[in-house]
Design a protein around this nucleic acid. Structure first.
Length: 589
DNA sequence: GCCGTTTTCGGCCCGACTGTTTTCAGTCG
């Protein structure tokens, strides 16, 4: 007997989501009804956003508790776990060459035409498509013409140009959007009202393009202003409804324009997300209401209601106002309905009373204790914890035990000298591969605040990494786990870790988990932070500042906290230190 | 394929744009 193939290990949520997405693509090529295809994509999204192992849930018959997953897809997940493959995918893969899915990724070429080109001309790859377009063979297919050929070639070229192009991190996106709005406002008609919409307004981690909305009585003139901005390299289309353009850096910009009385409708529509809007519209269409960017059409009266303010749109639909960060179709519509669970009062940046993670020149920071402390005080903080890296840290200065003792003294001296802010002595201690820490307990006990983080040996197997983290969580002197998954958005995936088990251990031991506010980290993610709080974990939002200016990164951590549905009570450092200190598990035992 | 104030079947958002069409299908956001 051959040995069991190695791909039968429990598949990660990412692997399951990818398998479901592939199945959706294949069914689409196979000509399945669009709703079936969408069902697979919705299921993939649901799996991707699940905080716990979906394979484990499915094995227990409980994956159907997740939205968008029914008995059929649960069976397929179980097949993937047990046999390493989904039979339906195997069958369809044999039917369609792998290059065919790549065709559907081209702008303007969807599944229907990809299938048509395959059936009629045997085109099964980008190369074959390019050759056929150059040879003018595409126009021989009924329904396709020379324009289509030209567009295909342009799309292939554009695809090659943008391949591997990074999405913009939220701060970069907001900066670009801000300069565009500033530039537009300078030339715009007097009545123009301009706003950032889209995923940037929802506070997502990274964005694909910049969405702007505007209202004015002179739409063509405003749309024309976009082309004149120095940041804009090219304009694709421009008219009364808006304009599409691209910056010199290659960032797509979509400006949508409506009449002033429709500002609320347009902003609601263009803020999205697509999933939120679709769910919102489905919900109210049963009552004869049709929502679009132009207004709310009521079948009963035939009237279309328009609103200048967004809140009025939700009110008309019988819902409480839903903050943009929650508009992801993650339960916000049920919560916002009368008789629903209600929406949380989301944490705000001004609720934060102190920062519990920053660095100084003692390790890899760029400023000293007093400089950081004064910057924190200027931000209105009541306390700041200095958490330089520890003894085994690989970059910056390693802080030996003796050096940490001297640092504690320096912090105490600065604290005595500086009024208006309490300075706390802490450390960001390395979690070694066996889960132990690189200072002894006697030294850790002298600190006010201990964060434990992984900075080495990222490539451990999931079981080992999870055991390593759980050991650190259970250490009696660890107050919080820093950037728990180690991911760097757009650069490095999280290390293999069962976050569900980490959360369980944190809840059981009373250890806090960090939302690291560095815009490239935002770790915990919104999905995991929401699960952590639901499990009873207290979250701490920290800047991880390495210089005074980056204390302001707190803002991005608050975005994640808000997207995780967190209120002030869920975030430890909305409390004064006198209330937070007793919540450390060392103070509770 | 999922789901339920339409509840085990029959629905499943909305509008713009494009290219190819004599009235619309495909694609996109």
């Amino acid at each position: 007997m051959p040995s069991i193939p190695s791909n039968t290990a429990t598949p990660s949520n990412t692997a399951i989501a990818e398998a479901l997405e592939e199945l959706g693509d294949l069914y689409e090529l196979d000509g399945a009804v669009v709703h079936r295809v969408l069902a697979y994509r919705a299921a993939a999204r649901s799996v991707r956003e699940a905080a716990n192992s979906v394979a484990t849930l499915a094995a227990a018959g409980r994956a159907t508790e997740l939205p968008g997953i029914g008995a059929t897809i649960q069976d397929k997940i179980n097949a993937l776990s047990e046999a390493g493959v989904i039979p339906a995918a195997e069958r369809l893969r044999a039917k369609f060459p792998p290059g065919l899915v790549a065709l559907t990724r081209l702008h303007g070429l969807g599944p229907k035409r990809a299938r048509l080109l395959y059936d009629e001309l045997g085109i099964d790859s980008l190369e074959a498509l390019r050759d056929a377009a150059v040879a003018q063979r595409l126009r021989t297919v009924r329904g396709l013409g020379p324009k289509f050929e030209a567009n295909v070639l342009a799309a292939i070229e554009a695809g090659a140009a943008t391949a591997g192009q990074q999405r913009l991190l939220l701060p970069d996106a907001l900066e670009v959007a801000g300069t565009l709005i500033e530039g537009l406002a300078a030339d715009a008609p007097q009545d123009a009202r301009l706003e950032v919409a889209g995923s940037a307004r929802r506070g997502v981690e990274s964005v694909k393009d910049i969405d702007l909305v505007a209202t004015t009585a002179e739409p063509e003139r405003l749309a024309g202003c976009l082309a004149g901005l120095e940041q804009i390299a090219s304009v694709g289309s421009s008219g009364a409804a808006g304009a599409r353009a691209r910056t010199h850096a290659g960032v797509g910009v979509d400006l949508r324009i409506a009449a002033p009385p429709q500002h609320g409708n347009l902003l609601q529509h263009f803020t999205g997300s697509g999933a939120h809007n679709a769910a919102l519209r489905e919900r109210v269409v049963r009552r004869g209401l049709h929502v679009s960017e132009y207004g709310i059409l009521d079948d009963a009266s035939g009237d279309t209601a328009t609103y200048a303010e967004e809140a009025a749109v939700y009110e008309h639909l019988g819902l409480f106002f839903i903050p943009p960060e929650l508009r992801e179709d993650r339960g916000e519509l049920d919560a916002a309905a009368p008789g629903g669970t209600g929406l949380p009062g989301l944490v705000q940046e001004r609720d934060i009373r102190g920062d519990l993670h920053c660095h100084t020149v003692a390790s890899d920071g760029r400023a000293g204790i007093e400089e950081m402390a004064e910057a924190a005080r200027e931000r209105g903080y009541e306390y700041l914890a200095f958490t330089d890296h520890s003894a085994s840290h690989g970059f910056g200065n390693a802080v030996s035990a003796g050096e940490l003792r001297r640092q504690i003294e320096r912090i105490r001296e600065a604290d005595a000298k500086l009024d208006g802010i309490e300075l706390l002595a802490g450390s960001e201690v390395n979690v070694l591969p066996d889960g132990s820490l690189d200072y002894d307990d006697e030294l850790l006990r002298e600190l006010d605040w201990v964060i434990a983080s992984v900075h080495t040996a990222f490539n451990m197997a999931e079981d080992n990494m999870t055991a390593r983290m759980v050991t650190a969580v259970e250490h009696p002197l660890v107050d919080a786990i820093g950037h728990p998954t180690g991911r760097l958005i757009g650069r490095r995936p999280p290390y293999a870790l069962d976050v569900g088990r980490l959360i369980e251990a944190a809840a059981a031991s009373g250890t806090m988990l960090e939302i690291n506010a560095n815009p490239r980290r935002r770790d915990l993610s919104e999905v995991h932070a929401r699960a952590a709080v639901a499990a009873g974990v207290l979250v701490v939002v920290d800047s991880d500042a390495h210089a005074p200016a980056t204390l302001a990164n707190m803002r991005w951590g608050i975005s994640t906290a808000r997207r995780a549905w967190l209120g002030p009570q869920d975030v430890a450092n909305t409390r004064p230190w006198s209330e937070l200190a007793p919540l450390r598990k060392r103070a509770r035992v």
